[in-house]
């Protein structure tokens, strides 16, 4: 397949299919995330990227034989490794016997949150999640370091005229979007705060929140969106998310407990756990939403700059 557009669309479909597979595997939280990331954000980013890099692949003159050999060796090793695996779905597998039973049986008493995934994610293994937030933050900073360009201030009048001319296009889309965006934002908030009880949480909420902003930016033009959302402001927001998460940990440190031990946050340990989870999920949501917006804005901004340059060159 030489057309990258089709390749990316297919990979988006693959993401969506694996998300539905995850649902049938009982991993609803993961499915939610995979649907928003694998089928949503990453497809979108790839599409923006190919508008800048061109959408066809050159016919390959590579020697695929070596690659094929490597793949076959790795694949057969993996198949060999599967032979002694516990059977699929078997309740006797070691992973269901050790470590996990405590999460399933005791998390209600220890953390007090019905969604076990949330309690493991945000309390038992909260440090992994802190690492995850930092990974996203790192990606945001990395994309900034690579793509952020010094923007030339353009005439406001030019933007306005540009907007007016665009206003006639996509009229229906814009009206529908204007109606939808508040609901999307509302849904993001619901996902954010409902993560304790159902699937959802800071990460998914952040992605949805960012999706609303990105939708706005796509339909109303980057410049309008930029005027609504300030770039450096949103970077600070990303930092605040990480810091919020970290400071919850530091508070437990200052109170003589271990890092990220929430039970100190309130007189009642369970209430403390609740508060801790709420705060760190909020931190996750902040960082994820702002980093997604940063990444998208910088990709799209780069593209606008390129187009401007081309226009100037042709003049």
């Amino acid at each position: 397949m030489k057309d990258l557009f089709a390749v990316i669309m297919l990979s988006g479909i693959y993401g969506l299919l694996s998300a539905s597979f995850f649902v049938s595997m009982d991993a609803v939280d993961v499915a939610f995330t995979e649907a928003s990331v694998g089928a949503g954000i990453s497809t979108l980013l790839m599409l923006v990227a190919i508008t800048m890099t061109g959408r066809t692949e050159n016919p390959s003159r590579h020697k695929p034989l070596l690659a094929l050999a490597v793949v076959i060796v790795t694949g057969s090793l993996l198949i060999y490794g599967t032979l002694d695996m516990p059977y699929f779905g078997s309740a006797q597998a070691p992973i269901h016997q050790h470590v996990a039973p405590r999460y399933i049986n005791d998390s209600m008493q220890e953390v007090g949150v019905p969604n076990i995934v949330t309690s493991v994610l945000a309390s038992y293994r909260a440090f992994d999640t802190f690492g995850e937030v930092v990974v996203i933050f790192t990606a945001g900073m990395g994309v900034l370091a690579l793509l952020s360009a010094v923007r030339r201030p353009r005439d406001v009048a030019e933007i306005d005229s540009f907007n007016k001319s665009m206003y006639e296009e996509h009229l229906i889309l814009r009206i529908v979007a204007k109606m939808l965006i508040p609901f999307i934002l509302l849904f993001a908030l619901y996902v954010q705060f409902h993560g304790d009880y159902g699937p959802g949480g800071g990460f998914q909420a952040g992605v949805i929140f960012a999706a609303a902003i990105i939708l706005y930016a796509m339909l109303f033009g980057m410049n309008t969106a930029r005027r609504v959302i300030n770039q450096s402001f949103i970077q600070l927001f990303a930092a605040i998310g990480v810091l919020l998460y970290g400071s919850v940990g530091v508070i437990s440190l200052l109170n003589g407990k271990n890092f990220l031990d929430y039970s100190i946050l309130s007189a009642d340990p369970i209430a403390g756990q609740h508060l801790g989870i709420l705060l760190i999920e909020l931190g996750v949501g902040f960082t994820v939403a702002s980093v997604m917006v940063i990444i998208f804005f910088n990709f799209a901004g780069r593209r606008n700059n390129q187009q401007n340059k081309e226009n100037n060159d042709s003049c």
Binding site: A27, V37, D128, L146, I295
Partner: peptide, 23 residues
Amino acid sequence: PLPHVLILTAIVVGIATTALGLA
């Protein structure tokens, strides 16, 4: 639930890598 948690983290790592690679 444990693999679910791990994979939530891994998905995030994956999108981070993709974004940086595309950039």
